[in-house]
Design a protein around this nucleic acid. Structure first.
Lengths: 227, 227
DNA sequence: TTTCTTTTGATTGTATACAATAAAGCGAGA
DNA sequence: TCTCGCTTTATTGTATACAATCAAAAGAAA
């Protein structure tokens, strides 16, 4: 993530505004298409408009916010077509990442990935009925997917996939899965890392494709229910 | 390009600064790793630091500029590894785009693509010895590739590929090609559009993959010569 | 009543002044 | 002479004041 999409870029206030707004978006605290007025945000966050504008620009580039010149920023609306676009791109890009990772992953990264698998599986074993457990699982899942892209050792790939995934529904992944789907997802994860261990790019790519296709279907179903 | 990476976002001054800096980067007017001081740029461009900062943020997100907090922006250095990353991603993403375009392209878009093929071929027929002709060809080529991504009818794909291609050497494509390579490139272009006309996604994707692989090799050779 | 124009208000875009930060220069001590 | 630490200075980060712009409301004419 180093230079193409810096992690904690900008100063203190700018970063604070960015995190504040993003967290509120992903937590679904605003209605679809809500107007994000700069002055209101700066008051609520406790910084001036400058860093707020900075944050809104970043979020616009990430696709979470829609900005019309001289008219302001709105929370981006999205529909089933956006979902199709996003998963189509995820399949293409993350499969590619898995293919690269299979031949480039280091021992340390492998250990990290196995550790994440263990964490997720033990969490599932203790039950994921509670909302907190599902959120925890979603966070671990995100870390797992990011770790794979990092194991591909392509900065741009990490940055681009990060942008594609920026999408509220994707951030609530496991809240929409049923138990069988969760079990299958865990199995996919472990199979992926096994494919890495075997240094088999074809295997790794195939599993990732299947994994994301399954996730696509689950999310699609969840979206229909919601709307 | 609508909302995920707005075209002429921000006001007049901000856009002016963005175009000014970007054009200077792509024209190779600064040495590798050059420091881009905000105050200097604002003086030269004739706007205040605010829109300059805005422009630098955008360029950082695009990967042309490298920004370190409290330390400033530098022209991003790049090497052969960046080239490999970029073409690896281009192959994956633009092939995907070609696959989609094969089934989604409209008659109007097809006509546009054929027209671009005609323009490029007639330009080649009249000779591309001069630097201006090669620049003209590069511009048409870029329009062609963008048009295909647009024919895929995926806003995010257009935005993402736009980011990936942002790279000085890629913008000087045909300046580095020899005559045989140019002829082959033109043939690829026409074959691509024929594959679209046949509505054959496998054909289209394969040609795009070959086209970009050939381009990768030419650019790789050009980079070695330069350094 | 409807439509076009004008005005008014609110909001974003830009400039500038100030604060925080980090790098470079300088000097004292070992 | 080298190293450590301080001071200085240059540059970025933030706040605020002002200008430009757009949307909606009010008013006039048909």
């Amino acid at each position: 993530m180093s230079s193409i999409a810096p992690a904690s870029q900008h100063g203190h206030a700018s970063e604070k505004a960015y995190q504040w707004i993003k967290q509120k978006i992903l937590a679904n605290r605003w209605p679809d298409g809500a107007a994000l007025k700069e002055s209101d945000l700066s008051n609520e966050i406790g910084v001036s408009r400058t860093p707020v504008r900075d944050a809104l620009r970043r979020l616009t580039l990430e696709g979470l916010v829609e900005t019309i010149p001289n008219q302001g920023s709105r929370l981006k609306r999205w529909d089933s077509q956006d979902l199709e676009e996003i998963f189509g791109l995820r399949v293409v890009m993350e499969s590619y990442g898995a293919r690269l990772a299979a031949t480039r992953v280091t021992e340390k990264e492998l250990a990290e990935l196995y550790a994440l698998c263990d964490s997720m599986e033990s969490l599932v074993a203790t039950g994921v009925e509670s909302a907190e457990a599902k959120q925890q699982l979603t966070r671990l899942n995100e870390r797992f997917h990011v770790a794979i892209m990092q194991a591909a050792h392509s900065h741009r790939l990490v940055a681009l996939t990060g942008q594609v995934i920026s999408f509220p529904l994707v951030y609530r992944t496991f809240e929409t899965y049923d138990p069988a789907e969760i079990v299958r997802s865990m199995a996919h994860h472990r199979e992926l890392v096994d494919a890495f261990t075997a240094r088999d790019p074809v295997w790794a790519e195939s599993v990732m494709r299947a994994h994301l296709s399954a996730g696509h279907q689950s999310t699609r179903r969840a979206l229909k229910k919601t709307r």
